[in-house]
Amino acid sequence: MVKLLLTDSGVRNASILAALVDLLGKPIAEAGALCIPTAGYGGPYGDPGGPWRFSSGRSPSPMTGLGWKSVGMLELTALPGIDRERWVSWVREADALLVNGGDALYLCHWMRESGLADLFPSLRDTVYVGLSAGSMVLTPRVGRFFVGWKPPTGDDSALGVVDFSLFPHLGSPDNTMAEAERWAAEIGGPAYATDAQTAVKVTDGGVEVVSEGYWKLLNPPSPRPGGRRGRRPAR
């Protein structure tokens, strides 16, 4: 499985940065990244400025401007018109995929349509760094609270790469803990509510919350006898 760093608002602090370097296994200055701006075009608030700021490193959510050895752009809506072997080679050569926020279901649709989602099981050395919707797209469901762009399926299902859901931007005026708890009751499965200083790190070894802010695990799973649970540091 691809190694995951599911951020709320980018690499906002030293703890999240250290988690990224740990996943890469080398300094950022020695790593090449591909940024995926697609989600920024989707949903009712999508506009050309957001993807440009994300790709150019001018976003307030640090991702592409971290000092990478190289950064390229992979626009998912363009991939169906490109020879598959070409763009797959680009993905396999990248150390990290930096995935923009925006509309999670729009992003999910194009990850499937482009074929990128099919590659994830084979990208064992690649680090996937999600930002907001770029993180939520890997969960089982986003919940009706976050539905903007309506997918052809008509539901709120995402890729289900991980077995938990995410409620980002906790503490913002619209994303209160009360809203998070209502959302979690609808989602049903385990879910993390996270603020801007928080990320969730996922490897074959388990799940770890990396935070210098506030987060909460909602609908926690029941412990399995003899099972192994990922480490979740105290808040």
Rank of each mutant, 00 (worst) to 15 (best):
residue 160 G to Q: 12
residue 177 M to E: 10
residue 116 L to W: 00
residue 189 G to I: 02
residue 177 M to S: 11
residue 174 D to P: 00
residue 149 W to C: 05
residue 84 R to L: 00
residue 210 V to T: 06
residue 229 R to I: 11
residue 201 K to D: 09
residue 222 S to A: 15
residue 31 A to E: 03
residue 30 E to T: 04
residue 14 A to D: 15
residue 142 V to D: 01
residue 91 V to A: 06
residue 70 S to C: 05
residue 169 H to A: 07
residue 212 E to L: 10
residue 68 W to K: 01
residue 143 G to C: 04
residue 48 P to N: 09
residue 184 A to H: 06
residue 24 L to T: 07
residue 96 A to N: 02
residue 136 M to S: 07
residue 35 C to L: 12
residue 95 D to S: 04
residue 122 S to A: 09
residue 23 L to C: 03
residue 148 G to W: 12
residue 163 D to I: 12
residue 68 W to Q: 05
residue 50 G to M: 15
residue 55 S to I: 04
residue 92 R to L: 08
residue 181 E to N: 00
residue 108 C to R: 14
residue 125 D to E: 15
residue 221 P to K: 03
residue 155 D to M: 08
residue 62 P to M: 05
residue 18 A to Q: 06
residue 190 P to H: 14
residue 117 A to G: 05
residue 164 F to N: 03
residue 203 T to G: 09
residue 52 W to Y: 11
residue 1 M to Q: 05
residue 207 V to W: 00
residue 101 G to F: 02
residue 83 D to N: 10
residue 189 G to L: 06
residue 140 P to K: 11
residue 62 P to R: 11
residue 84 R to Q: 13
residue 29 A to Q: 13
residue 91 V to E: 00
residue 8 D to L: 11
residue 203 T to V: 09
residue 128 Y to P: 07
residue 66 L to I: 07
residue 196 A to P: 02
residue 166 L to I: 14
residue 66 L to K: 10
residue 195 D to G: 02
residue 193 A to P: 04
residue 211 S to N: 01
residue 160 G to M: 10
residue 226 G to Y: 07
residue 149 W to H: 13
residue 121 P to S: 02
residue 139 T to M: 10
residue 222 S to P: 10
residue 77 T to S: 14
residue 16 I to L: 06
residue 44 P to L: 13
residue 140 P to D: 08
residue 145 F to E: 04
residue 126 T to G: 00
residue 191 A to S: 15
residue 162 V to C: 11
residue 166 L to P: 11
residue 67 G to A: 09
residue 234 A to G: 15
residue 208 E to L: 01
residue 203 T to C: 06
residue 121 P to G: 04
residue 82 I to F: 05
residue 232 R to S: 11
residue 128 Y to T: 01
residue 198 T to D: 04
residue 213 G to R: 05
residue 190 P to Q: 12
residue 98 L to I: 01
residue 95 D to P: 06
residue 56 S to A: 15
residue 110 W to A: 09
residue 101 G to V: 03
residue 179 E to H: 11
residue 157 S to T: 15
residue 146 F to H: 09
residue 187 I to P: 09
residue 210 V to S: 02
residue 30 E to G: 10
residue 147 V to K: 14
residue 42 G to H: 07
residue 181 E to M: 09
residue 129 V to G: 01
residue 45 Y to F: 13
residue 216 K to G: 01
residue 6 L to T: 02
residue 51 P to S: 09
residue 216 K to V: 02
residue 196 A to I: 00
residue 14 A to M: 12
residue 195 D to F: 03
residue 10 G to S: 03
residue 112 R to S: 07
residue 96 A to L: 01
residue 226 G to W: 12
residue 124 R to L: 05
residue 41 Y to I: 01
residue 69 K to W: 03
residue 85 E to I: 12
residue 156 D to V: 12
residue 83 D to C: 00
residue 118 D to R: 13
residue 180 A to V: 07
residue 179 E to K: 10
residue 164 F to S: 02
residue 130 G to S: 03
residue 69 K to D: 04
residue 23 L to P: 05
residue 56 S to E: 11
residue 175 N to Q: 14
residue 151 P to C: 02
residue 107 L to I: 03
residue 121 P to V: 04
residue 170 L to S: 01
